[in-house]
Amino acid sequence: MGREHLTNDEFFAQLNNLFEYNRDKGHGSVYLSQKRLAFDTRSQPQTLTKVADDPLWDTHPENPLPILIRAHNNKSSKRNGTDRGDVDKISLSTAVQPDQLDAFFVQYAEACKAGMSGLKKRDRRGKKDKKKRKKGAAETKG
């Protein structure tokens, strides 16, 4: 996994592509994950090391830590007789600094809402139908 982390903006652009890709294909999955980035050595080695005496060593770090966000899809290979084609696995990752966390998740929510278009929309049609039916029933009774 020797990949470099993307910047947050690049990550969102790529994430939108990933969702768009999924939509074009009509099926498939997008995986998102987040975890604490406890071992980043890019700037300076973190002081977060296991302390044998303290079983809760990791619950109270001195400084806020960045979060690692990953996203990927599934690789698929061509299969005759179906419309399945060769798809490479696309994986993205970005590190979110603690001070940008709130802003990042606002943007993340927007990206996911836009991307997950296959989920069920809120269906108000059924309610209307029921109301109509009730009305109709009332009229027939009365």
Partner: peptide, 14 residues
Amino acid sequence: PTTTHITSKYTVLK
């Protein structure tokens, strides 16, 4: 807090 990770999967199935 260090070992726990959150994974989410959005999947569309035909």
